[in-house]
Every structure is written in C-alpha cells, then in structure tokens.
C-alpha cells in the first residue's frame, strides 16, 4: 500500500503519551515533539481518514496504556485535534480525508494556573 507523509505534533502534555523513539526524529528547531511520519495512504475508494490516522497513532506511536489515548472509538477527553492550524471540527472531524503534507496536531488541554 502506498504511503502518505504527514507532520505530527504533540504538545502541552500530549507529547508525554508518545514513545521515546519518536523524540529522536523530532524537529530540533521546533522544540515541540514534531516529526514527519508516513502512514498507509488508503485507496481511492477508501482514502485515509482522521479516525484511521488516530488508530494508527494509537497502535504505533503511543506508549504504555493505549487507552490513555483512544478508547471505545473516542479520543481521550481533553485532547484537541488540530488540522493545518484549525480545530478538526472546523474540518470534517474524524471523517476528514488526510492529505499529504498535512500538519496534524494533538493538544492536551491545561487546567493549571
């Protein structure tokens, strides 16, 4: 199956969910956990959607307890998904068709003050 390269970014605490090996691939200049990553592209009839990308992240990138990231078909509460600078609900949410070179970001909400 062909591959699709996207940029993934995990910030505000969401980076703590990701395996340490991806830290080594991270863009040093950004300071954030941010890296290019290849995902299976899907087919013309069944293109890769955000929900599948999230499952891919859960299965391949998340360390430890996978439920901490995604459970029962839902992303863990308190994580915002941002596609190319916009809340994924401005796009099509889980149904959004992932494009090559998309920047997809997982932001953990903060409660402290």
């Amino acid at each position: 199956m062909s591959k699709l390269a996207v940029t993934l970014r995990f910030v505000s605490g969401a980076e703590l969910l990701i395996k340490d090996e991806f830290r080594a691939q991270s863009n040093k200049k950004s300071g954030d956990l941010e890296f290019k990553h290849e995902v299976p592209a899907g087919t013309e009839e069944a293109p890769l959607r955000m929900k599948e990308l999230i499952e891919h992240v859960r299965d391949n990138l998340v360390k430890g307890d996978k439920d901490q990231f995604y459970k029962d078909g839902k992303l863990r509460p308190g994580i915002l998904v941002i596609i190319n600078g916009s809340d994924w609900e401005v796009e099509d949410g889980p149904e959004y068709k992932v494009q090559a070179d998309d920047v997809i970001e997982f932001i953990s909400t903060l409660h402290g003050g």
């Binding site: 505000s12 300071g31 954030d32 915002l80 916009s86 809340d87 609900e89 970001e105």
Partner: peptide, 14 residues
C-alpha cells in the same frame, strides 16, 4: 510554550 519555536501559535476554533 517556553520550549517551542516560535513561542506562540494561534489555532482556529470551531
């Protein structure tokens, strides 16, 4: 973030 370069980013919300 103190850590990020750039330090500030703005994301569009629903």
């Amino acid at each position: 973030s103190y850590r990020s370069q750039p330090h500030f980013r703005s994301v569009k919300l629903r």
